[in-house]
Design a protein around this nucleic acid. Structure first.
Lengths: 348, 348
DNA sequence: ACAACTCTTGGGAGCGCTCCCAAGCGTACG
DNA sequence: CGTACGCTTGGGAGCGCTCCCAAGAGTTGT
């Protein structure tokens, strides 16, 4: 009746490890979870048993009993095809992966493009199927961040939605990056410096424009609004903006595009207008993507530390999760800004 | 004593749904899992309760009780930086995401670069923390696929390790793609057509070379081995190979590079040697990446249906998982080959 | 009218783990 | 020498769900 249940196949359980080590289940659990309240001798015995049996804890059981999942989600707005075109995504993932490498945390990838997927996502979160969320490339009007905040779900956002971002955030220094780019053009002797902006409802795009303005003003150049052409981060948008600029100010001698892709569009138009780069018009982009390296001429661009951002976001998130569970009420929301770097190539 | 336990906060459980619907836990479970053995009336009642309570099943509990995880892993060899540089990864992910959209399956992203991570990975699998695995960009000598096969873990591999791939696989038609590229060069009147290959221990690279050879032979051209330069998929390797080619056969009038990145390296060398593209030497790449579109001149390239591959891999995997659990012993290993497409631009 | 079936249904028995309480032991202190 | 505490330890009580068995209700056939 009370015969020991002998499990022949299958994965070993905590119970079996405990039996093998000659201790109780609770003690084995303590060792495996690194509790200090275990004698050295017992610890060794359990560790030996774990090694011999090749024990690996059952995640589902852990999650169920411990009311946590040991998993975080990376939420990617799939609709952002632009976003995907860059190595951005890969770099972020690499950074996240690196930061997670020493952890037991799993990385869940969630594409939230259409409404259908967003609904699923909301359910994930509602059901607490992850311990935290990394939000990447979120637009200002996205309801998700607020939803997460309401739910009290630890989250970190890449970039910001606006100046008063309430979520913990990790951003690159768009302002300084843009300023450095324009300063560089000024140092090269350019005087009529135009800019092609991204969608200005994206905070980063706004900041790049601010940086441009600041640099222009600081140099005492003419802050002609006709030198500012709004676009949408697309190649076609960049081309269109460049055409407008040439029409309004044919004397333009430098262009700072708020993305490499837009710069590529601008380059095309400049070429067609018979202008040489950089001889007639210097061109600088933003992102330092593959497009920049392979452009002809190679494009000077502002590099963002994407992988570093991924790593930092993850670290911040893990910290948030730890705070949350330890009931640490310190309500400081980290807002980290990472420096950018100007990579000078032949286009300027 | 037997007072109903009233749970005020927290997420609703199956038990609560059942109570609300006035049925038993088992019945509620049946409805939620779509069992047909429930009366229409009961089903409605339960569904109403689910809606009212906003019930979402607890994944961990499900996994624990059902001995499955409803999650699949996408295993990416992080060391493949080349791989990451392309939009390849993004496209695969998008395809996988699309195929998973109608499913309850979660996508786990696993970077398996160094040994440390591979060990973790082996543990994941050992502990059956996923229902299936998608392997992407695997080298011939990677031990992982065999390990998975031994463990009986449903898996699908992108590409193949060799001609006798044993795992279910989804590949693009490298052979036909290469042949089409070379045929196109021949149709353009080129006679001395060289090729720059990828690492030939990668099956796909070998197949592209085969396709090249086939096309050259079919056209009755001189199959001079000196027109074949091995490289390693890198830009620098492409440049080196191009130098060799020019040295051995200065009369070369076309080059088929087995990747866009290598083509970029070749282009550089061709330019430096004073040759014009395509006037003196036509150039064709493979992958149809961003590099191809932004090269000067824009590069003719062979497009692989990457997103489609991701979608197909996922479908195949889901099927494998279903077969496995239904005990369906049909041991046919799907091997799918998707067609490529030649995108003609100005370089040829 | 009764036996034999079929269709539904309820709920017990776990899944493997964490949490936590109480018990066992050893030691320091009055 | 007795009592109080601190450190370890064992194991019960769930976590929420699926599986499955047995019971109840309704049908059909003879």
């Amino acid at each position: 009746m009370a015969a020991a249940r002998v499990r022949s196949g299958g994965r070993p359980t905590l119970e079996e490890v405990a039996a093998r080590a000659g201790v109780g289940r609770g003690t084995a659990s303590r060792v495996i979870n690194g509790s200090p309240r275990v004698s050295a001798q017992t610890r060794e015995a359990v560790e030996a048993a774990v090694a011999e049996l090749g024990y690996v804890p059952n995640r589902a059981a852990r999650a169920l009993a411990g009311n946590r999942t040991d998993a975080i989600a990376l939420v990617v707005p799939e609709s952002e095809t632009r976003f995907f075109a860059e190595p951005y995504f890969s770099d972020i993932v690499r950074g996240v992966g690196a930061a997670l490498a020493d952890t037991e945390m799993q990385l869940l990838l969630t594409l939230a493009g259409n409404d259908r997927e967003r609904r699923r996502l909301a359910q994930y979160l509602t059901a607490h199927r992850v311990d935290g969320v990394l939000l990447v490339s979120v637009h200002a009007d996205d309801p998700l961040p607020d939803l997460l905040e309401q739910l009290g779900m630890p989250s970190v956002i890449s970039g910001r939605r606006h100046a008063a971002e309430t979520l913990p955030s990790v951003d690159s220094d768009n302002f300084e990056g843009a300023r450095a780019a324009v300063d560089h053009l000024i140092a090269r002797g350019r005087r009529s410096i135009a800019t092609i902006t991204g969608r200005l409802d994206v905070y980063g795009a706004q900041r790049r424009l601010d940086g441009y303005r600041k640099a222009v003003a600081a140099a005492g150049l003419d802050p002609d609004e006709r030198l500012i052409a709004p676009a949408d981060f697309s190649e076609e948008g960049g081309a269109r903006a460049m055409r407008e600029l040439l029409e309004r100010r044919p004397d333009v001698d430098a262009v700072f595009a708020a993305s490499d892709v837009m710069a590529a569009g601008a380059r095309q138009v400049l070429r067609e207008s018979g202008r040489r780069i950089p001889d007639d018009v210097a061109l600088v982009g933003f992102d330092d993507s593959a497009v920049a390296r392979h452009m002809d001429p190679p494009l000077t661009s502002v590099r963002q530390p994407i992988e570093e951002m991924g790593r930092t976001m993850t670290r911040v998130l893990l910290q948030e999760i730890a705070n949350r569970s330890s009931g640490d009420g310190t309500e400081e929301r980290p807002r980290i800004v990472l420096p950018t770097e100007l990579v000078v190539r032949e286009s300027s």
